[in-house]
Design a protein around this nucleic acid. Structure first.
Lengths: 240, 240
DNA sequence: CAAGTTTTTTTACGATCGTTAAATTCACTT
DNA sequence: AAGTGAATTTAACGATCGTAAAAAAACTTG
């Protein structure tokens, strides 16, 4: 379990020097301290925006003394970036799977199943969408939030996955618009569900609200998806 | 210019006791210290999320010593709430005006003009939409961000203005969905324009990006608006 | 001008932040 | 069992935060 530190540190452990690291094969449920920290940090960072979250909160969540966090991560920003990276990777891999077996179902059923899978993911893994939603707006050119490039990449990755998974033939411009609009609404309605459900007078995890989200995504996105699919239908439908 | 303080403060000025306050009639360009503070705070709060913004930043922006802020506002939270209230009020009043003279134009031209006015407002007054976008996601039940009720109210007010200004006859449920989707996209694309423009490879204030925003709003919302208008067209079209 | 009040500045307190460094405990080899 | 290096805890530093209190300045009113 070699932690990475920034240079010029006296007690730094000098990673991967000549130790046979056997951390990748543990297999059993035992979690490393590093994973424990990342997990706790993802909880804190999904409930508090970056500057409201603190290292001490994360330490308490992980049931460790907070300076230990600096032993595994040189700075708070580095930890946040790591959480962001992991979070986006989890979402990215899940997103790929949501497209599986959709092409045989046609637009309506395919879209419906995709949204069901998305909502199911958001229910079982609420952290990724919350972290993204919490920090997305602040990700500008200026370095207010660390790792804003990762947040930018999130949308671009989602678009590429869509293009690879769905046999659309429309203009790139239209595909970009479709995926951006879809993901914007998904991140907002599922990542900030407390807010929107509150507006609608619902509970954020209620079937009522989840149905509202699905219906909204469907009625707004599906017509454009069908149009994009029709353009490419004659060429390679059912492929991929 | 009597400031309001929280109780139990020795130096508190005891507001509105027997002073003839003549602050509402000044008319001339001279701004009061209180207005100066609110203006500076709106700048800071539109560029930094609540916990990243500091009283000292606001003092520097207002070119005053920061403790003076506490003379006019008991706490940072109170100042933020005041900024939020003012900001939302400005947006609310502007929103009412954007509907003026639209009913005679028909759905397409009316919607187009409304969006033009909205985008024009966002360009000339970028602070309101940025403040709302920056703090919207964090506005949950818990008191992470002060004044979250105001942020909830923002969407509800916008919906009521829409209902009063446009002769729609659809179900409340559909109207609610339409306005929520519209405002969600508007707040995101205009309040977090740096982020979305970055994704699209554009500049956030470029005509290219603003056209993208308008086209997206139009292609997604307009069909549903037309449908809602058709339902009520036979009854009272052109009214209001 | 003098007295009193309001506004602004100066100074500083207590809390919390991220981070560092030293002390301590733990795991493991010899 | 002793020694060694990694992991963890303890303690603390410097910075910044929001806020309070007192001092100073500016203004109002006799």
């Amino acid at each position: 379990m070699p932690p990475m530190k920034r240079p010029l540190k006296k007690t730094q452990p000098v990673v991967n020097k000549n130790k046979k690291l056997h951390s990748e094969d543990d297999g059993c449920g035992k979690k490393t301290t590093r994973e424990n920290i990342i997990n706790a940090a993802s909880i804190v960072f999904s409930n508090f925006p970056y500057y409201a979250a603190s290292i001490r909160m994360i330490g308490k969540e992980a049931k460790i003394d907070h300076p230990l966090i600096n032993y595994y991560f040189p700075t708070k920003a580095a930890l946040f970036e790591e959480v962001l990276r992991t979070t986006i990777e989890v979402y990215y891999q899940a997103n790929i799977q949501w497209f599986e077996g959709l092409s045989a179902l046609g637009p309506e059923k395919g879209f419906s199943l995709y949204v069901d899978r998305l909502i199911d993911f958001a229910l079982n893994h609420p952290k990724p969408m919350r972290i993204i939603a919490l920090n997305l707006v602040q990700a500008r050119q200026s370095d207010i939030i660390p790792g804003y490039q990762l947040l930018q990449q999130f949308f671009l990755d989602a678009m590429q996955t869509f293009i690879r998974s769905v046999p659309v033939k429309g203009a790139d411009f239209d595909i970009q618009r479709l995926t951006t609009n879809f993901n914007t609404m998904a991140i907002n309605y599922l990542g900030a569900s407390d807010y929107y459900a509150g507006i609608l007078g619902m509970e954020s995890q209620s079937p009522e609200y989840l149905k509202w989200v699905k219906d909204s995504l469907t009625c707004i996105i599906l017509p454009w998806l069908k149009q994009l699919l029709e353009d490419g239908e004659t060429d390679n439908r059912g492929a991929g």
